[in-house]
Design a binder for these strands. Structure first.
Length: 702
DNA sequence: CAAACCCCGGCTTT
DNA sequence: AAAGCCGGGGTTTGTA
């Protein structure tokens, strides 16, 4: 799926990028051949590519998924059957034309169809045979005529699509004109054939706006057919891409009402997804999803507009029953077809889940079924906003056994999960809801917080969030109110049924397992030829923030308190004093916020700034070994060596000196006096250094 | 804890 | 059809 959308690279970059970020190796789906799909897209991607022969038979059984499941009572029309007839007809035409053209296309499907036909006549009477032959002959004639034109058009097309020396504007125009003259009356014949359709694609790309509109008009009434044609769909996608707003509106209008059928169609589903992702705004997206609710909403565009799914479902039991059946019908069919990664489906699932979670008892059966259908494919969900919401909700309401399956399927994509903008919240949900902390730790923390991976994670805006959760819970300022309330919602859902352990206990368990792993991986950056080094990490604001947060996390773990934390603090201390502070490459000069890191360590959790009193105050019982006053005293000793202080007060270092001085003033009068004396000697320097805010603050504090 | 800043989607412009 | 503006949200920063 992710592959599928890459092709539209020129437009809609935003949504495309979003998708590209997360690329779970698509779990090979039983029926569908993702690879074939990719080939399809690739060969349709641009006109300047290799032979069209690669577009071969992923077609077989394409309409099998289109059979309306019995759940769609609202669909009185039986168009699915009708459509597959059409498909067959198209295929035959295709086959004929290709034979005529002696196109050495090894289309396996054509082969199958031919074989089927060869077997067919034996069963028929000779009268029928004659009739059939006459019909065939007529068709062939018809085709030969078009076939000849196709040949000529293709010659022109070859010239138009070359890229090595791109044709000049005039030539392009001339070629387009000629092609158009030849094809304008037979567009419909062209667009459903794989090679001829590509001619039209190229035409669309190079011709004028006016003619594009003409083509769009010429195809009016046939867009559904186009969307469900294995070759036509590429053209349709191209038209959407290059077409005007009005063209798009026309097409959307025509497809409107057929979305559910399209979604169940192998080719159609891609068109719908494309439309949804690339060419629809928020409102149109909503409207599209509403079609999945049922016929009423499919026929009347505005039906249910501005109402949430819960409003609608609350209106009557019958309505609810119907909508839920329809939704699950479309969703289950699409999952089975391997379209789990489609964004539009995620949106539909979100509606479905919203209702499911509105009353867990009442929907128990549906919940179990839904999770069962989806559990193995969770990785396909978590890279979109809505998909991730669905995933988190389901994790929250899953029972212990179901959670195990879900965790197993997410575990294989751990890195993508944690680094993804939305996926990381799913991981946090797992941290917050699953009682089996041993399993969660083994599946994620132990796998991800390795020396190889951790440095990458702590400097990643999204990946560090689950890490920060492990350190500080939701309390810190690292989570926006919106995310917080969402996570809290999952938490409440979880406690309604499966989850039993108190939150603090679960977090403590996860933390006690993960902290040593994190420490060790971080310490690994201080030794050997590790890349990045700790100093490099500390030069990145996000990573530095994490390191401070880690050190300031209180723990009972003996190993951390007596060995790991001291080593890490030592390492930072060494980095600070390894080189002359006046050198450009010293961290303090390279990254202004390193002074904040040091300040945070100097104050530890022991002191905080009192905004009322305008001074630093001690916080009782918050001491953490190695940092706070202990670290301050250590720095003070180093600063009092030789002329160190004179250098430190000149730049960002002044803030550090100030922090040390303030802390010692509270806890170590003697040493603070020493520093005070030393600073006073530098008074004149400080007074001169007017644009150094740190220096000025230092003066004030004396 | 507020101001500055950045990123993104939607809209307008040439 | 690409480039550019605008507003909103989220993030980062600045330092009493």
């Amino acid at each position: 799926m992710a592959k599928g959308v890459k092709r539209t690279a020129t437009k809609g970059n935003a949504s495309e990028n979003k998708r590209a970020k997360f690329k779970p190796q698509p779990v090979p789906q039983p029926a569908s051949s993702l690879e074939n799909e990719a080939t399809f897209y690739e060969s349709a991607e641009d006109d300047s590519d290799k032979s069209s022969g690669s577009e071969s038979g992923s077609e077989s059984g394409s309409d099998s998924g289109a059979e309306s499941s019995s759940s769609d009572e609202l669909d009185s029309d039986n168009e699915t059957g009708e459509k597959s007839d059409e498909d067959e007809e198209i295929d035959e035409l295709d086959e004929l034309s290709e034979n005529d053209e002696e196109n050495a296309d090894s289309d396996t499907e054509s082969g199958e169809k031919a074989a089927a036909k060869a077997a067919d006549p034996n069963k028929k009477s000779s009268a029928e045979q004659h009739a059939e032959q006459r019909k065939l002959l007529a068709e062939r004639k018809l085709n030969r005529k078009s076939g000849a034109e196709v040949e000529r058009i293709k010659l022109l097309w070859e010239k138009l699509r070359v890229t090595k020396p791109p044709p000049s504007k005039e030539i392009k125009e001339k070629l387009c004109n000629e092609i158009w003259e030849l094809s304008k009356d037979i567009v419909l014949d062209l667009v459903l054939k794989h090679d001829a359709s590509r001619v039209v694609q190229t035409l669309i790309k190079h011709t004028t706006k006016l003619r594009r509109d003409l083509i769009v008009q010429a195809l009016k009434g046939n867009y559904y057919k186009l969307a469900t044609s294995s070759y036509g769909k590429y053209l349709l996608v191209k038209i959407l891409h290059y077409g005007s707003k009005e063209s798009r509106a026309l097409i959307v209008d025509e497809l409107h009402g057929n979305l559910r059928k399209l979604m169940r169609h192998k080719e159609g589903a891609y068109v719908v997804e494309d439309l949804f992702v690339l060419y629809s705004g928020a409102q149109q997206k909503q409207q599209m999803v509403r079609e999945f609710w049922g016929s009423e909403y499919a026929v009347f565009k505005d039906s249910g507009k501005d109402k949430s799914i819960l409003d609608i479902v609350g209106e009557s039991a019958e309505k609810k029953q119907l909508i839920m059946t329809n939704l699950s019908g479309t969703i289950v069919a699409s999952i089975a077809k391997g379209s789990t990664g489609f964004q539009i489906l995620h949106a539909a699932m979100k509606d479905y889940v919203t209702v499911l979670t509105s009353d867990l008892e009442k929907h128990d059966l549906q919940i179990r079924e839904f999770i069962d259908a989806l559990a193995e494919q969770f990785a396909e969900l978590v890279h979109t906003q809505e998909g991730a919401e669905v995933a988190s909700s389901l994790i929250a309401i899953a029972n212990a056994k179901e959670r195990k399956t879900i965790i197993r399927s997410l575990k294989t994509h751990g890195k993508e999960l944690i680094k993804n903008e939305y996926g990381n919240a799913v991981l946090i949900t797992l941290f917050m809801t699953v009682d089996d902390t041993v399993l969660v730790h083994k599946s994620f923390s132990a796998e991800l917080f390795t020396p190889e991976l951790l440095p990458e994670l702590v400097q990643d805006k999204f990946a560090r969030r689950p890490l920060l959760y492990l350190l500080t819970g939701l309390a810190g300022r690292y989570f926006s109110p919106k995310i917080k309330s969402e996570l809290t919602r999952y938490e409440m859902l979880a406690y309604a049924k499966t989850t039993k352990k108190p939150q603090e206990q679960r977090l403590a368990e996860l933390q006690s397992k993960a902290l040593p792993v994190i420490y060790k991986s971080l310490l690994a950056t201080t030794s050997g030829d590790s890349e990045p080094t700790l100093a490099q990490l500390l030069a990145l604001n996000v990573a530095a923030q994490f390191v401070t947060e880690l050190i300031l996390t209180k723990t009972d773990d003996e190993e951390i308190n007596s060995k790991l934390r001291p080593q890490l603090v030592d390492a930072i201390f060494d980095i600070t004093f390894a080189s002359d502070i006046l050198e450009d490459f010293h961290l303090l000069n390279k990254t202004p916020f390193f002074s904040r890191t040091l300040k945070a360590l100097i104050q530890g959790n022991e002191f905080k700034w009192d905004n009322e009193a305008k001074k630093l105050v001690a916080v009782d019982g918050a001491e953490i070994p190695q940092v706070g006053s202990e670290f301050a005293a250590r720095l003070a000793d180093a600063l009092l060596q030789d002329k160190a202080l004179a250098k430190w007060v000149t730049g960002q270092g002044a803030f550090v000196v100030l922090a040390v001085y303030e802390v010692l003033t509270i806890l170590d009068k003697e040493k603070s006096l020493e520093i005070r004396k030393a600073i006073k000697k530098l008074r004149k320097d400080l007074e001169r250094d007017t644009d150094n805010k740190g220096a000025q603050l230092l003066l004030k504090s004396l």
